[in-house]
């Protein structure tokens, strides 16, 4: 349920909420990742789809794309700022630096997954 602004004992609740949201962000690339790996598998066996050569290319491309998306996307920070102005919440400088920190960490996570893409691409290609 929604929690108001009661201090301290909600600290943990807020952090838990943040972690859950971060997971939601990461879910999308992970799903894509598994889709690319899983979906072509059956075709490879029945219809001789060249799994070893095609899947890595797709993975690689999507990986690079993910890098770009991670770099460009502000993960909704701009929307939060607009919302806070609308509601009337005051934004101080350390709020903004906190936001940048969060944004940066999310981007690094995306980079991690993107590099995972590329790593698996090479792995599938060579093994």
């Amino acid at each position: 349920m929604y929690q108001g602004d009661e201090p301290e004992e909600l600290e943990k609740l807020v952090h838990a909420d943040a972690r859950k949201a971060r997971l939601k962000y990461l879910l999308v690339p992970i799903i894509i990742y598994s889709l690319i790996l899983v979906v072509p598998a059956p075709f490879a066996f029945e219809y001789g789809f060249p799994y070893r050569s095609d899947v890595p290319t797709i993975l690689f491309i999507v990986g690079v794309l993910l890098f770009f998306v991670a770099a460009w996307w502000d993960f909704g920070a701009k929307k939060v700022l607009n919302e806070s102005v609308r509601i009337g919440v005051k934004i101080t400088n350390d709020d903004i630096s906190y936001m940048e920190k969060q944004g940066f960490s999310l981007m690094m996570m995306y980079f991690g997954i993107a590099s995972l893409f590329i790593a698996t691409a090479f792995a599938v290609f060579y093994i």
Binding site: Y2, G4, P7, E11, A18, K20, K24, R86, G88, D95
Partner: peptide, 23 residues
Amino acid sequence: KFFGLRSSAAGSIFVQAGKKSVA
């Protein structure tokens, strides 16, 4: 009716814990 910053997924990440962000 409360307007909370933390309602959206992005909001819950980007708004600091101690910050009063509910109208």
